[in-house]
Design a binder for these strands. Structure first.
Length: 259
DNA sequence: ATGACGGTGTGGCACCGA
């Protein structure tokens, strides 16, 4: 069973790449972020033709998330129930897989701009609300996955310049403490369950030849619950789509679970 | 210190992302 997350930075622009990628990588579940389109413009038919059920939660211009699944989905929840938010950032659903139900939370975490800004304060409030939601969901769904664009580097290993970028956005102690809090709920960073190449990143700046110089960050993650941890057999970042013409600035992260 | 690149919306640019 394969699960993946990918910030596509506009699904309108990236749909052909998503369909190509799914044809080459027929994952069971794909969480998408930054759709940047409203639900009436969501390409449900094209995705269905590729063999996927879908549930979308979009908005105009910014944000927007969706879950694509080869297995039927139910109990879809949009955004964080106890956190009023104008921004479409979270979609949760239960997938009925042959191995049993799997709860998947797919999120586009707040960027936060810079410490000390209103956006950063919003990020910290949003992170606290997310933790509460994940805590509740874990109580009901032991087989749980939290995937998405976290906009947090968990560790100094996860950034190209840990010294120069120390304390800047995506690298602050507050953001990393929230990441640890998620792990403390009983989740595991599936990427770090396996040996990985040094300087493994999932995002690279479009500017200044970021990808070519591997000046990136690992900010896209797939966290899995205690019950799923023994089933994880591999996790990798697929850099291939970043080499496409008109790429997203993010690359997909792919997790393999044993059946 | 700033902008660099790319997407959107709307407009001749500004805003946002990370």
């Amino acid at each position: 069973m394969l699960l993946a997350t990918w910030n596509v930075n506009s699904l309108s622009v990236r749909l052909p790449q998503v369909l190509d990628w799914l044809a080459a990588n027929p994952v069971d579940v794909l969480g998408l972020q930054e759709l940047k389109l409203t639900d009436d413009k969501f390409p449900q038919l094209e995705i269905e033709s590729a063999g996927y059920h879908s549930a979308a939660f979009g908005q105009k211009t910014y944000n927007g998330v969706a879950l694509l699944s080869r297995h039927p989905m139910r109990d879809v929840v949009r955004n964080l129930p106890h956190f009023a938010d104008e921004q479409a950032r979270v979609i949760s659903a239960t997938l009925d897989t042959p191995q049993g139900p799997l709860r998947v939370i797919n999120a586009y975490f707040v960027n936060g701009q810079a410490p000390g800004t209103d956006k950063f304060a919003y990020k910290l409030r949003w992170l606290a609300a997310l933790s509460q939601w994940v805590r509740e969901q874990l109580q009901q769904h032991p087989r749980l996955v939290l995937m998405g664009d976290f906009n947090v580097t968990p560790d100094d290993r996860d950034t190209f310049d840990p010294v120069g970028l120390a304390g800047t956005i995506h690298h602050t102690p507050e953001e990393r403490a929230h990441f640890q809090e998620l792990l403390g709920l009983g989740l595991h960073d599936s990427f770090r369950l396996f040996e990985q190449p040094e300087k493994s990143f999932s995002w690279w700046d479009y500017r200044m030849l970021g990808f070519q110089k591997n000046r990136g960050m690992r900010i896209d993650h797939i966290l899995i619950s205690d019950a799923l941890k023994p089933l994880a057999s591999a996790c990798h970042i697929d850099r291939a789509p970043r080499k496409n013409k008109q790429p997203s600035d993010h690359a997909p992260v792919v997790l393999t679970l044993k059946d």
